[in-house]
């Protein structure tokens, strides 16, 4: 089996490598790929959209329809993980573990026993609990605010530098995941609950698609942000620029929320009780 697989894959590679002989040389600036469509973007994007970062301009405007569905794909991944994994019935645990914060004594509460949920002195811990690492916890506490600020910078600065909704959204989602890894799933879920994550995921894509639909209502085509100039006091070019910012924010909201949502479902196998 393995030798057959190896031979067939090697044959396929050989054929494909042979086929690259017909390609233009790598880096050739006269190749069709670098001349036919791309020249228009490079020469006109700034005039058309007032966005110096060409990747952002093409991503969110010329090919904004692709990007809308790209965001939808992320949402589908979140929905699919929830759909396939989430188990609402809580597992009947034999016992739950609580740790007395001051003394470090662990209480084992058997099933049916009274749990010290309201107490300030006890904190619930995972069944496979390892002692908290002070360095990791404090370091993540220090880093997370700056990471979140950086995420917002990346989102807002997508017009002028590498960045945008996807990148910033992923960084933002990663901060919450970092919190979940450094502490536990419950402390992350106290900041961003499952419901909030799910609502934000859909709302983010809805912002994007809603801006597109608003353009139809204002008399343009779907996602034609220049139609927004009728609503606000922008020139059509600036309307495109601000429309791009609007959809990038939608993308960032959706992506960050979906990353958190997927992490919750995968890390806890759908129970949302104890994470990794």
């Amino acid at each position: 089996m393995k030798s057959i697989a190896l031979t067939s894959v090697a044959l396929l590679c050989a054929v494909l490598i042979y086929s690259t002989m017909g390609f233009p040389a790598w880096g050739d600036s006269d190749s069709p790929a670098s001349t036919h469509v791309s020249d228009y973007y490079i020469e006109n994007a700034v005039n058309d959209t007032a966005v110096p970062n060409l990747v952002t301009a093409v991503l969110a405007d010329y090919r904004g329809y692709d990007t809308l569905f790209e965001t939808t794909v992320v949402l589908i991944a979140g929905l699919a993980c929830f759909f396939l994994l989430r188990r609402f019935k809580p597992r009947q645990p034999q016992h739950r573990l609580y740790r007395h914060i001051d003394t470090g004594i662990t209480l084992i509460i058997e099933q049916g026993g009274k749990e010290p949920t309201d107490s300030e002195e006890f904190v619930r811990i995972d069944s496979r609990w390892v002692p908290y690492d002070l360095v990791i916890q404090q370091a993540s506490c220090l880093v997370i605010p700056f990471l979140q600020l950086f995420a917002l910078y990346v989102i807002a600065h997508g017009h002028h530098s590498p960045g945008g909704g996807f990148q910033g959204g992923v960084i933002f989602g990663a901060t919450i995941i970092l919190m979940a890894i450094a502490n536990d799933l419950r402390s992350a879920a106290r900041r961003v609950s499952e419901r909030l994550g799910a609502l934000m995921a859909s709302a983010g894509v809805l912002i994007y698609a809603g801006i597109g639909a608003l353009c139809i209502l204002l008399g343009g085509s779907f996602l034609d942000y220049s139609a927004l100039s009728k609503l606000f006091a922008f020139t059509p070019v600036m309307a495109r620029s601000h429309g791009i910012l609007g959809v990038e924010i939608g993308v960032a909201v959706a992506v960050s929320a979906v990353m958190i949502w997927i992490y919750y479902n995968l890390a806890s196998a759908g129970r949302h009780e104890e994470g990794l």
Binding site: H36, V37, Y40, Y41, D61, Y62, R63, G64, Y65, D66, G220, S221, F222, L223, D224, Y225, S226
Partner: peptide, 10 residues
């Protein structure tokens, strides 16, 4: 889509 002519827009 988005009002762009075919080879450049979708």
């Amino acid at each position: 889509m988005a009002g762009w002519a075919p080879p450049w827009g979708i």
